[in-house]
């Protein structure tokens, strides 16, 4: 066990855990931020996507020891009331079905738009390729990303 100082959603947090614990489980079990989801544990499905220093990363596969000194944003930190442009676009297109993968999808989309405000279809495909949705909401996700890009 060791103590780690983390910057999550602009807030300093200190946790005492095994250094190998993935960020995902620190968020979910220690910090009660359960919007970030467990899907595969091997960085293949994207349900656990958070933004770390501006990049979309899979929090299930990065140990907490690598998180010190970085800035992490989770779905809970995007906005107070769900009014981030990407969240608003998600509402407008009524994207979710079961909803489980959607936080990860949104975080990938936010990271994409922060680095590339006007993505092409191929840019969107590439940026979202790491996020699986079994409900198959991809067509609406793409529309929502385009709507958010315009706003």
């Amino acid at each position: 066990m060791a103590t780690f100082n983390l910057n999550i959603n602009g807030k300093s947090q200190s946790v005492d855990v095994d250094p190998n614990t993935p960020i995902l489980w620190v968020l979910r079990d220690q910090l009660d931020l359960v919007g970030t989801k467990y899907g595969c544990g091997i960085a293949q499905c994207g349900s656990c996507t958070v933004i770390m220093d501006g990049n979309a990363v899979r929090s299930c596969s990065i140990p907490v020891s690598a998180a010190e000194g970085t800035k992490i944003t989770t779905i809970e930190g995007l906005s107070e009331n769900g009014d981030h442009p990407v969240q608003k676009a998600w509402m407008e297109h009524d994207v979710p079905q079961c909803g489980y993968c959607q936080a990860g999808q949104i975080m990938s989309a936010v990271a994409l738009l922060e680095s590339n405000p006007n993505p092409s279809d191929t840019d969107i495909d590439n940026a979202m390729n790491g996020n699986i949705c079994r409900c198959g909401t991809y067509v609406r996700i793409k529309k929502a990303i385009k709507t958010a890009a315009k706003s």
């Binding site: 931020l33 970030t36 989770t74 969240q87 509402m91 994207v95 949104i106």
Partner: peptide, 20 residues
């Protein structure tokens, strides 16, 4: 609109795995 869309897109605890 889906009555839970706001909870989904803001990452509120909704699923069994989120329960504590």
């Amino acid at each position: 609109k889906n009555v839970e869309v706001n909870k989904i897109i803001t990452g509120k605890p909704l699923f069994t795995i989120d329960y504590n």
